[in-house]
Structures are given as structure tokens and as C-alpha cells.
């Protein structure tokens, strides 16, 4: 049995150590920390003692790329079209069902047009799960990093985001999700290359077909061209083609 009170003293030693260390850390970062200008703050290195306070309104921590808050829609700045095709997958995977999509219809044919007429997200229901962004096949909806959305007056008008409020240029998306954006560009390139190859294959096949038709020998080349014509449409799934070349 140790001396009564030694345990308490030991514990107080720990608090004293913490107390001193906070100042020791301050001395270590003197000059660096005293900066008045807001500086982007990276995640703290766990090697430091204790924890550095983030002086929030003055300085903002850099959000990791995967961070998710409220979703937003991506607008293609090149074509100035929204990427969304109103396929409805995000509305289906949304766990609290806070996404409402009204599909555009062609006024003449009543056929659906791959663009949303209305798009609503109720942020007072949204649970920031990120499923919409994860399962969107067109990279049209992404999770925002901006957590500074408060409403002071009317949540029904301010916190139910409509299409205009949700739409962000893809440059914004590229800024906050650089890795994701790079992957998208690569995908796009691959897609284009595929399409190009398919078009070439088709051209070759057509030429062959024409030649075969001209020669009038049905047996041999016909079997040869069959696979070529078959492969031609496959790299172009009907849905995937929509965002690259809008239907209008």
C-alpha cells in the first residue's frame, strides 16, 4: 500500500505536464502561430503534444476530399449543360428520400428528355450519407464541402435547395475533389477513345460491307463482318452517351 495521496499527486503531475506542454508547444511554434492572416490549417500531426485549437471563424481547416456535407449538382462549364440526366438513381438510393426530381418531357412527343426540370434536396432531411454521389453513373451529383449553410429566418425557403441553388460549375467540383476530377477526366478520355475506336471499326466494317456487296460474294465476308457490326454499338450504351452529347 503506497502512501495515501500519492495517486492523486501522480494524477496532478499529469495535469501539470499537460499544462506546461501547452506552453512548450506554443514556444515551439512561436511566430508561426502568431500570424494574424487566416491560414489554411491542415490536419494536425499526431506527433504533436495535445491539440492545436482551430480558431474557426478566422481560420478554416482544409476539408479532406472525401468529406461530405450537402450534395450539389455539377454543371459542365464547357457545354454549359448540367450533367444530370434525371435518371433517378440518386432519388432511389437516398435513404431518407430527400431528393425530388421532376423529369423533363418533350412537349411534342411526351418522351422524357435526359435533364431534370426540377431538382429539390431537402437539407433538413438529408443525412449526408453520400450515396447519391457514390451511385450516380454520370458524376452529376457530388458532395459539397461547404458546411456554412445556416438559415436565420425561414427553413422552408432557405433550406430546401432547388436546382439553381444546387447547381455548381464543374470547376468548383474540380477544386474540392481533385482526385475524383482526375478520375473523371480519365474516364472521359477512355470513353472518347472507345467511341473513336468503335466509330473506326464501324467505318471499316461499312467499307467492307460495301465492298462485299459490290463483289456480290455473300458467304465469306458476311460472317466476317457480322462480329464487327455487332461490336460497334456496344461501347455506346444508350444511357452513358447522354451526358457527353445532350439530346437537344
Amino acid at each position: 500500500m503506497s502512501l495515501l495521496g500519492s495517486g492523486i499527486l501522480k494524477g496532478l503531475g499529469v495535469t501539470l505536464k499537460h499544462f506546461i506542454q501547452t506552453y512548450a508547444e506554443d514556444f515551439k511554434y512561436i511566430g508561426k502561430k502568431a500570424g494574424i492572416e487566416p491560414r489554411p490549417l491542415r490536419r494536425q500531426n499526431p506527433g504533436n503534444h495535445g491539440m492545436v485549437t482551430i480558431e474557426y471563424p478566422k481560420e478554416h481547416m482544409v476539408m479532406p476530399e472525401n468529406f461530405r456535407y450537402i450534395p450539389f449538382l455539377v454543371k459542365d462549364t464547357v457545354t454549359n449543360e448540367d450533367k444530370c440526366t434525371s435518371c433517378g438513381i440518386c432519388a432511389k438510393v437516398c435513404p431518407p428520400q430527400c431528393i425530388w426530381i421532376l423529369r423533363t418531357e418533350d412537349p411534342m412527343t411526351k418522351r422524357p428528355v435526359p435533364a431534370p426540370k426540377e431538382f429539390h434536396i431537402d437539407t433538413s432531411v438529408c443525412m449526408n450519407c453520400g450515396f447519391c454521389a457514390e451511385f450516380c453513373p454520370f458524376d452529376a451529383i457530388k458532395m459539397d464541402h461547404n458546411y456554412e449553410i445556416t438559415s436565420m429566418s425561414n427553413r422552408k425557403t432557405e433550406l430546401i435547395f432547388d436546382k439553381d441553388r444546387l447547381m455548381m460549375p464543374d470547376t468548383y467540383h474540380a477544386g474540392i475533389h481533385p482526385a475524383d476530377w482526375a478520375r473523371e477526366l480519365e474516364d472521359k478520355k477512355a470513353e472518347e477513345a472507345k467511341k473513336k475506336a468503335a466509330a473506326e471499326a464501324k467505318a471499316v466494317a461499312d467499307a467492307k460491307k460495301a465492298a462485299a456487296a459490290a463483289a456480290g460474294t455473300p458467304a465469306g465476308p458476311a460472317t466476317k463482318t457480322a462480329p464487327a457490326t455487332k461490336t460497334a454499338p456496344t461501347p455506346k450504351p444508350p444511357a452513358a452517351a447522354a451526358p457527353a452529347e445532350p439530346a437537344q
Partner: peptide, 8 residues
Amino acid sequence: VDVYIPGC
């Protein structure tokens, strides 16, 4: 309510 903060 004075301030609403969405997010989950």
C-alpha cells in the same frame, strides 16, 4: 428558432 443548422 433563431438559427437553423442543417447537416447530419
